[in-house]
Amino acid sequence: MRVVLAEDLYLLRDGLARMLTAHGFEVVAAVETGPELLEALLGLRPDVAVVDVRLPPTRTDEGLQAALVARREIPGLPVLVLSQHVEQLYARELLADGNGGVGYLLKDRVFNAEQFVDAVRRVAGGGMAMDPDVIAKLLVRSEREEPISRLTPREREVLALMAEGRSNLAIGQRLFLSESAVSKHTASIFAKLDLAPSDDDNRRVLAVLAYLNSATTR
């Protein structure tokens, strides 16, 4: 699997590249600035990109902006965004196009190599990987807001794990449910959030998006 890596700190970039290579990825480009990243994304069209939010030259949100631009050019281009801090604001922007293939994780999550690589694979496969911190922040408020208030507590738990990017099987293991019970819950969630039947991955993204939007201000 071909990966583009964007990270401005040498130590981190090197470590990430080593880890990904060790897990069978092919790092086709490891860049350190926003413009380089955009060029690599559009030029090399990797299977997945691992991107730091803050990159030179402005050291603001160059990485995020480059990823968003690239995804506008190539819809669904899988991007996993890493950051020292997670914001619902950024998560919303990443998910807004509803195309999936999006991850947004704290850099700490890299510590657990297996889980991290798993997240990269999920994103590359068009799935999703939202940081548990983002989900936790969402849970603070969205319970009283439409349409999330229609969900049962159990369905909300399932939705939260879905947002992290877990498969039905993984969700079942986590909540001690059978896989069929989980898919019953997901079907109920999709119905309550008025999501028309379509490709399952896409609906999972839309469900999470509805979740995010319920906590938004506009």
Binding site: H85, V140, T216
Partner: peptide
């Protein structure tokens, strides 16, 4: 770091930093 200078403020400026702040509140904030 958040207490010294919030990263969103550095990355996006005041407007988005306040939007991000509002998103994290348990009270619905316009």
């Amino acid at each position: 770091v958040r207490g010294i200078h919030p990263p969103v403020l550095a990355e996006r400026g005041l407007a988005d930093a306040i939007r991000a702040l509002a998103l994290d509140l348990p009270v619905r904030t316009e």
